[in-house]
Amino acid sequence: MRYFNNPEALLRLVSSMQEGFAITLTIFFATLLFSIPLGMVIALLRMNRHRAVSVPVSLYILVMRGTPLMLQIFAIYFAVPMLTGHNLERMTATILAFSLNYAAYFAEIFRGGIMSIPVGQYEACRVLGMRRSQTFFYVVLPQVFKRVLLPVSNEVITLVKDTSLANVIAVGELFRAAKNEASRTASIEPLFVAGLFYLIMNGLVTLFFNRLTQRMSYYRD
């Protein structure tokens, strides 16, 4: 053992992984920031009654969910410059790929949530004279929020771990930092330390969603 029996070395290892952790957090929060609103838009387009809209969107969701995220990261990082002639920053490509991919998953979760709202709610809004947009924002969306919390928390936990995929285009995130340290010192311990980072982060994510679920329990359907 090189680190686990040597607190000083362990502390140095952890601080050398700090920067990687910061990059991991950036990918994580940026992906959530973009993919959740985008997912809602995709869900609504997927439910559009015009097939010219819903069919292409279904295809998008099929491709995003049906191919490896790792491949999508490569594709965006290498193919976009070939097609457009502009180079992408590694981080930009990463966040773009993650956002497009996670938006597809979120879209299907939101779609399920929206479809689970009883038709009676729409009819009540209608006889009260509410517009469709008012119905959506004041009646449907707040109820969808509660209904999708659990599946969304699953997705967010997966995202924490998936950020490690960014290392395939040499983004220096947490896992890459740990891997570099591991090969430099010929020890597997840095990888376990990285694992601990992910675990702690997901503990916090779980705590956050438990709180949110509790806050939303002020009503039952």
Partner: peptide, 16 residues
């Protein structure tokens, strides 16, 4: 349609 009001069998109140 604002001239009409409607009460449903299963109320359809807004639960939230």
């Amino acid at each position: 349609m604002l001239k009409m009001g409607m009460v449903f069998q299963s109320y359809h109140l807004f639960p939230h």
